[in-house]
Design a protein around this nucleic acid. Structure first.
Lengths: 215, 215
DNA sequence: GTATGTTTTAATCAAGCGTTTGAATTATTT
DNA sequence: AAATAATTCAAACGCTTGATTAAAACATAC
């Protein structure tokens, strides 16, 4: 079993696929482009992953699994610690911190992945949606519980909407981060960081969620 | 010149293409699917529009042109009227009203188009981005001016970010409106309307944009 | 050093794509 | 009614796609 070479090929494919999927989308990235750019044979994808669909899922799992595990651990620990509920800002901070921890400072890979997450919402990949909800749905539900504790006075329906508004703001912004960065540099002569962008998102989302309910 | 039949074919193609593009994306919708569903010949697209790319642009133009014209007219009129600047809420209301006017109550077509707008951001279609910015960039800039008047104390960079956060919230929410509606009905036994959703977006975005700047 | 299982390779397959073509059909003009 | 222009049609073209195959190369174990 040539494990060293094996892992090389698998990793090379995952790296290139992640990058190309984020740049072009799933459908518009061919296995030929991936394998040639990774310097491996065309058949390697089907050999190591089974199919293109399973490669897509593997790309998500590689990042999502450690992130969700780390996040779940933090959330559970906080409940067990007996400390006060998170505020919205604290909760969002935990998300950002956990993301930073998992990515270990590799900003461009993080933005790449946020783009992928955005694509997962907008591109038709039924197998992906099923895969994500099956494997990571429970963590999402756990976050929901913490948001509800942070905004106890908000009517549940209203809260539901505003969480989705926030999700949209975050996914949309982070997935088009590279473009926005360029515009920012051109129009405002300012270089912004990903960290800074996420920090800016937090007060926006928190304030939006807490807005007065008119109804 | 068989104009009546011509317009029929053109309209049939546009209707079907709009719907399919919104459901599946541009790349994953083939001309064969469009033409067969529209009941016209495969070659009709290339005959009437020139290419698939130009068909995509035509789908956007059909809705965007009347919308932007109507919006521009309203904004200019308000400036000339000498009344006070719009508040953020009033400005967003104008956007919603104009959209409703252009769509004339056809909610499903409106949400369809919002999905398309979301796709335009996330799918790689350089020709589309160029087409949109060339034809509708001036209207976008005009809206920016009004937002700046509505939030005069906000530092321009911060405002820039928050506008994009809001754009993300709106596009994301409205483009997945149908799905959210189903979840809402299931989990909360409530039927929500598109109008109601947009109305809910307004205080969220306005409050988010006005959040305290920490810097 | 031979045997065994794993990985890589090049070639090929069937299917789907956007586009083009030239003839047939339909509508308009004279 | 004849001539002309616009539209529709079926068929084909060249190309790219994901997947499969059988042979070659490689690593590991005995």
């Amino acid at each position: 079993m040539a494990d060293s070479n094996n892992k090389d090929t698998v990793k090379k494919i995952l790296d290139v696929a992640e990058s190309l999927f984020a740049q072009k989308g799933f459908r518009e990235t061919s296995l030929r482009t991936i394998t040639s750019k990774a310097g491996v044979n065309l058949a390697a994808v089907n050999y190591h992953f089974g199919s293109k669909e399973q490669l897509i899922q593997a790309v998500f799992a590689r990042t999502l699994t450690p992130f969700c595990d780390a996040l779940e651990k933090r959330l559970i620990e906080h409940v067990h610690s007996g400390e006060k509920h998170y505020t919205l800002e604290e909760l969002f901070d935990v998300l950002v911190l956990t993301a930073a921890q998992v990515y270990g400072g590799d900003v461009s890979r993080f933005t790449l992945f946020m783009r992928l997450l955005g694509l997962a919402y907008t591109q038709v990949q039924d197998h992906l949606r099923a895969f994500l909800s099956e494997n990571y749905g429970s963590v999402f539900k756990r976050i929901l519980v913490h948001i509800k504790m942070a905004a106890p006075d908000m009517p549940p329906k209203e809260l539901f909407w505003r969480i989705h508004f926030s999700l949209g703001a975050a996914v949309f912004t982070l997935s088009s981060y590279e473009t926005l960065r360029e515009i920012m540099a051109e129009d405002y002569q300012v270089n912004i960081s990903l960290d800074g962008t996420m920090k800016r998102l937090i007060p926006y989302m928190a304030s939006g969620i807490r807005a007065d309910v008119i109804d």
